[in-house]
Amino acid sequence: MKKILTSFAGMLISVTDLFAQQDKFDLLPAASYDRFIVYQNLVIFWIGIISLIVIIKMKLKEVERIQKMGINKEEKNIPVLD
C-alpha cells in the first residue's frame, strides 16, 4: 500500500509540473510602466537614427559638392614645403 501511495504521490507531482509548464509568460516586461519605458525608448531610438541620417546626408552632400568642384584631388607637381 505504501508503495502504491508513494508512486501515486510521485505521479501527482509530475502532473503538476505538466500544468506548470503550460502557463503563459510575458514576452515583454509585464508592468505597464516598464512597457511605457520600452516604447518611449523606441521613439527616442528612432529620433536618434533620423538625426544620424540627416547628419550623414549633409556630410554626403558636402562631399559631392567638393567633388563637383574638383578640389578634392591633389594637384600634381605641388611644391614640397619641407
Binding site: 537614427i49 562631399v63 567633388q67
Partner: peptide, 17 residues
C-alpha cells in the same frame, strides 16, 4: 569612399531601426 560608404551607413541605420 566616402560616397558609397555613407549611403551604406544610411541604409544600415534604417535596417537597424
Amino acid at each position: 569612399f566616402p560616397n558609397f560608404v555613407y549611403k551604406d551607413l544610411i541604409i544600415w541605420l534604417v535596417m537597424l531601426g
